[in-house]
């Protein structure tokens, strides 16, 4: 067991990542109480095995790995669901909108409520959902996500790609159901005046990388 001061310092640093773990647990369990149980168990395990954490490495990724392993062991059984997403085609929502000349396509995304986006994420199979959580929500690099999930980087990339396709499909279905777009992909609402500046505030400049 670590010295009390060292343990306190470790705990304090670990708690700086609490929101990330809680968000992840919430999206994995779909239940606030279960999420708190999972996170608490993960922190206790992290404290127990703090000697295995290498200073200077990514503590957030280390903690998330502990939590998701617990999730699979305790909540889902040790056998991971081998759920593969159907191939829904490339860029479903984007292509549907684009084919019908609805521009700019990204405007549709701004009309979809955040709760519906969360719902679409929640509908993803867990193995795909956790990649979206790590890369898109928490900003993990592919390398850190691969280490956290104990899979090759190529698996992270393929799961992420499939997950984004599925997200587009779910969001398109919602956009049709809620009348944001018609089933043929056209935007609802007043026609745009293409001669004037767009009110789209998304990036037109490609960022320097």
């Amino acid at each position: 067991m670590a010295e009390p001061a060292a343990q306190t310092a470790f705990a304090e640093e670990a708690l700086t990542h609490l929101d990330t773990l809680y968000r992840g647990a919430l999206r994995l369990t779909h239940d606030p109480d279960a999420a708190q149980d999972l996170v608490q168990e993960a922190y206790l395990r992290a404290l127990r095995y703090q000697h295995s954490y290498q200073q200077g490495t990514n503590m957030k990724a280390w903690l998330f790995a502990i939590m998701r392993n617990l999730f699979w062991d305790r909540f889902k059984g040790s056998r991971k669901e081998d759920v593969s997403l159907d191939d829904v085609g490339e860029f479903v929502l984007y292509d549907k909108l684009r084919d019908e000349g609805a521009r700019p396509e990204a405007d549709v995304l701004d009309k979809i409520a955040a709760s519906e986006v969360v719902s679409a994420v929640d509908k993803l199979p867990p193995l795909h959902r956790e990649v979206v959580l790590l890369v898109d929500v928490e900003g993990f690099s592919y390398k850190d996500a691969a280490q956290t999930l104990a899979v090759p980087i190529g698996t992270v990339m393929s799961r992420l790609h499939r997950a984004r396709q599925q997200l587009q499909k779910s969001l398109f279905d919602y956009a049709v159901e809620s009348g944001i777009v018609r089933p043929d992909g056209m935007n609802e609402g007043p026609p745009r005046n293409h001669g004037e500046a767009s009110d789209f505030v998304g990036p037109r400049q490609v960022p320097q990388q």
Partner: peptide, 17 residues
């Protein structure tokens, strides 16, 4: 435009979750 959409989708997912 394709890039704009993908970038926007990523930001919307992050903002929402």
């Amino acid at each position: 435009e394709h890039y704009d959409f993908q970038e926007h989708l990523k930001r919307v997912v992050k903002r929402s979750c």
